[in-house]
């Protein structure tokens, strides 16, 4: 463990707390893409199946359980409890175009052709594009509530911080995982224009308005 990975995981934890708090407090999931949340649940389910087979640490187990529970709780809020506030018309990204290529790529490019390894690889590839429906929805509505943009900033920062973790681990332990690194860079790059808008607008107290 290193400070970059710890900050990354905390940033991820803060993101899911912000999201759940926003939905619960405002009793509304307006502006939130249910499709992205479905993809995140898929990502964590595929990646954290090893919870039953390998024990890494209390921290590792605790965080995996938190991310699994929060992703399913968010789906429950969006599609059941507060489904009246779910903006279905603006959440139209075709997620099958993200899932199928991730499955194919995981079957073709992986470290080891075993069940858990291919699932892990699938989850890494899918996570790199899982935010697209959410970013697409923000671009369609042309704006995002500031709490939603704080959520996106924290979520985007998590994998960005992991890049520093991978650099650190390569330099200090000669350890690297090219699949996680490439996917993590793609994932972080997808947030770049949002990061720019967040820093130039939201931090100045303006609403996040995307050029329509």
């Amino acid at each position: 463990m290193n400070v970059f990975r710890l900050l990354g995981d905390l940033s991820h934890l803060i993101a899911v707390i912000i999201l759940l708090q926003k939905i619960w407090h405002t009793r509304s999931c307006a502006g939130i893409s249910g499709k992205s949340q479905v993809l995140f649940a898929l990502v964590y389910t595929a990646r954290y199946l090893d919870l039953v087979s390998t024990y890494v640490s209390l921290y590792n187990t605790f965080m995996k359980v938190i991310f699994l529970i929060s992703s399913y709780a968010t789906i429950y809020f969006i599609y059941m409890k507060f489904r009246a506030t779910y903006d279905r018309n603006h959440d139209t990204f075709r997620i099958e175009f993200l899932i199928l290529p991730s499955v194919l790529l995981a079957l073709l490019i992986n470290h080891q052709f075993s069940f858990l390894e291919v699932l892990w690889t699938f989850s890494i590839y899918l996570e790199s594009v899982a935010i697209l429906p959410q970013l697409f929805m923000v671009s369609k509505t042309g704006e995002a509530e500031s709490i939603t943009s704080h959520y996106l900033f924290a979520l985007g920062s998590y994998r960005g911080l992991y890049i520093f973790n991978w650099i650190y681990r390569y330099w200090s332990e000669q350890h690297y995982d090219i699949i996680a690194i490439v996917a993590g860079v793609v994932q972080t790059v997808l947030y770049c224009d949002f990061f720019y808008l967040y820093v130039t607008k939201v931090l100045k107290g303006k609403k996040l308005q995307l050029p329509a």
Partner: peptide, 10 residues
């Protein structure tokens, strides 16, 4: 080395 040992990252 690629990451065949136990995966310790989230």
């Amino acid at each position: 080395t690629n990451d065949n040992d136990v995966k310790d990252e989230l």
